[in-house]
């Protein structure tokens, strides 16, 4: 049983190690995945959590912490303008290139299945954390 699980995990790990790391450490929720997709498709976006929540059809209370984590992880940048916190895509070329290859990889169904597996695992780990 444990062996079978190990096998599955092994199979699921069979993706570009940089993307695997991205999924384990930075795009580790579906909301982040969604936000990254939005910023990747609309790379010159500069807006508040409230508006980004509207654009992605979600509640700001859910989106805001995810945006903050993406900014901490260097995927987004956050800037305070007057009383507004404005999020933009990172200007770092390496990170943008990495997100690029992630979004391109997502065109492949096999990759998506593996990516979804890793996000679910991250979410579970998060939930089980004491």
């Amino acid at each position: 049983m444990a062996d079978a699980q190990d096998d599955a995990a092994h199979l699921m790990d069979d993706i570009d190690p940089r993307l695997l790391d991205l999924l384990r450490t930075r795009i580790n929720t579906f909301i982040k995945w969604d936000l990254v997709r939005f910023f990747h498709a609309n790379p010159h976006t500069a807006d508040t959590a409230e508006n980004l929540a509207r654009y992605t059809g979600r509640d700001v209370r859910v989106v805001e912490p995810e945006l903050r984590q993406l900014a901490q992880a260097g995927v987004l940048e956050v800037e305070t303008l007057a009383d507004l916190r404005v999020y933009t895509l990172t200007a770092d070329n390496n990170t943008v290139a990495l997100l690029d290859s992630f979004m391109r990889a997502c065109d492949d169904r096999q990759f998506r299945i593996k990516a979804i597996y890793h996000v679910i695992r991250s979410l579970r780990r998060e939930r089980e954390r004491p």
């Binding site: 500069a46 508040t48 507004l84 404005v86």
Partner: peptide, 10 residues
């Protein structure tokens, strides 16, 4: 650029 009036003004 996708943005909002409040961000643009600020």
């Amino acid at each position: 650029i996708q943005t909002s009036p409040e961000v643009t003004l600020a």
